[in-house]
Amino acid sequence: MQTQVTMGPLLFHWPAEDKRDFYFRIADEAPVGTVYLGEVICSKREPFFSKYHDQVAERLQKAGKTVVFASFAEVMTPRERKLTQALCEDQAYPVEANDASALYFLRGKQHRVGQYFNVYNEETLSRLAGNGAVHFSLSAELPKDVLSVLSDAAREQDVSLEVQVFGRMGLALSARCYHARACDRVKDNCRYACEADPDGMELKTLDGMPFLSINGIQTLSHTGVNLVQEIPEMMDMGISHFRLSPHTCDMVEVAKIFDDVIHGRKSPQDAVETFSEKDYGFPFSNGFYHKDRGYEWKQVA
């Protein structure tokens, strides 16, 4: 498969029209090969944007982009189960499975496996490939030696790999909504407290150090991963897809920088320079890739 930048699922709860306009602009301007739609984090948000799904998907496809629908990271309630089943059985679009219940419905069909389902080793990858998985988007915490072995396994199984290279990293999921909790509410009467934080709600330590970012039931890193320096090394391994996780910063511009690096029009060093000239809403990190603390940022010579 052709090496490409992808736009991962939008993790935050943006107003539906903002979201629609975001995807229209991605369709028209961003050099990305694949766009993942679908609500991953909270089933309560799902109804707002579903009316725009077809419109957005069509515009993206017309622009030559592959459209994939991602499933929920957490499936518990009867409604979540039903929506997951419908998504997987409908097969209107390729599906990316983010939990085992989606995998249950997708067995024997061609599908993708998402960041929220743990694929940490070659045997898990092969087993899932045997059930129809053709593409794997890997967990943000995997270091490069693990990615390298997984790449060999992927080549053997004739499947492709995707790594998140930009945006805050999902660090944890819970059944409890922490946005609701911060507003002294519970999940069932949350009144969509999460809508006020389009890039997540900041959590600082008691002595004022920014640490985490809350997105409903999800806890993200305060820093945003940026693996632009590591792109050549990952391409050498055979990793073909590089995921950007959408934020309110100019994602078209971010996509262009990564696309330029992938196609050799820009050196990783120049790209780092470009990134350093602007505020993207969070400091960058690449610790996980280098088997270090996740928040660390290392300049690769």
């Binding site: 967990s139 943000a140 915490e141 990293m169 660090l171 944890a172 999921l173 985490l212 806890t219 890193s221 610790g287 996980f288 088997k291 270090d292 603390r293 996740g294 928040y295 660390e296």
Partner: peptide, 9 residues
């Protein structure tokens, strides 16, 4: 959960 990994490696 990768919270520990984020803070400690």
């Amino acid at each position: 959960c990768s919270l520990t990994n984020y803070a400690t490696g």
